[in-house]
């Protein structure tokens, strides 16, 4: 089990060091929210801010989301968990940020909890990882649980469903959508300006929360995140009506991995699968 207090101490110490030395302009971490279960993302800009930093088992937010908000060239230190570090890798691959402008404070962690349900999210939405794939400073002991977790086992029951049942399932889910775009706001990969759904020429889909517009919005979003989704599950946790978006993202990630033999955000040298090709890709993938 992860020692959250220990990580919090280390995080504070590291942040203080960086801010006092002036080697970063901002440290992205977590602070106290309304209560213990609702911590907030926090940007520490002065050494005094460091006292507000906390870390507990409800700090699920993917802080990679906030990197793109700073002007290019800003030196940023980010606290990254396993999935967050993959998001950072994808952002580097997409040239949204340079590696040399980042200091990654890696947090090896297991036993994070969903603030709504209280259940442990490890096996559901962390891509089966507990240690960050890339970091500069590690704020704790690396975790080796021994049993490798496949991130895709939760999909089995949905893959077995027959087509009509699956359509009915997704239709019921998407019909709940109120189009608050919390999934888009929470997603570290959703930084397009304007988003396709906000465009009026062409207008891709209705903005009102109706079945067909919802379907268009979500399906296109799944397509846009193909080969980029790093399975942090923030979209699902941000969703006020509990649509299990992570299932669909996982499925697309699984298909991409099977077809193109590469998982998103594992190595900085990799090219994103959707902006890459192999001449020897088989036409079978289209069947």
């Amino acid at each position: 089990m992860t020692n959250f207090k220990q990580i919090e101490e280390n995080l504070k110490k590291e942040a203080k060091k960086l801010l006092e030395a002036g080697s970063v302009a901002v440290v992205l971490a977590y602070t106290k929210g309304a209560d213990e279960k609702h911590p907030q993302p926090f940007a520490a800009k002065k050494a005094d801010d460091v006292a507000n930093i906390i870390f507990n088992e409800y700090c699920n937010h993917n802080l990679a989301r906030y990197i793109v908000r700073y002007a290019p060239g800003t030196k940023i230190a980010v606290a990254v968990k396993a999935a967050d570090s993959r998001a950072v890798v994808v952002l580097i691959q997409e040239e949204k940020i340079k590696r040399e402008n980042l200091i990654l404070l890696g947090i090896p962690v297991s036993g994070m909890k969903n603030q709504k349900t209280g259940e442990i999210i490890d096996e559901k939405t962390t891509g089966g990882l507990t240690n960050p794939v890339v970091y500069d400073v590690l704020l704790g002991e690396e975790i080796h649980t021994g049993k490798p977790v496949s991130p895709y086992t939760v999909l089995e029951q949905y893959e077995k469903m027959d087509k009509d049942a699956r359509f009915a399932f997704w239709k019921a889910q998407f019909d709940k959508c109120i189009r608050c775009y919390a999934c888009r706001k929470a997603c570290p990969m959703c930084y397009c300006d304007p988003c396709f759904i906000d465009q009026t020429k062409p207008r891709w889909a209705d903005k009102s929360p109706q079945s067909h517009g919802n379907l268009m919005y979500h399906l296109t979003r799944f397509q846009h995140l193909a080969g980029r989704c790093i399975d942090c599950g923030e979209c699902t946790r941000a969703c006020p009506v509990d649509i299990p978006l992570y299932l669909f993202h996982k499925k697309v990630a699984k298909d991409c991995e099977e077809m193109f033999k590469q998982a998103a955000g594992m190595k900085i040298e990799d090219k994103l699968v959707m902006v890459d090709f192999r001449v020897e890709d088989s036409d079978k993938i289209l069947e």
């Binding site: 087509k163 193109f260 993938i285």
Partner: peptide
């Protein structure tokens, strides 16, 4: 594939549309 007028366009399209197909499948459309 290999005959694209722009050399590589259809190779990108192949990957992209393969994903589209998987999405249609998982969403429950034929």
């Amino acid at each position: 594939p290999g005959d694209c007028h722009y050399n590589t366009g259809n190779l990108y399209a192949r990957r992209r549309l393969a994903v589209t197909k998987k999405i249609l499948d998982f969403a429950g459309l034929e």
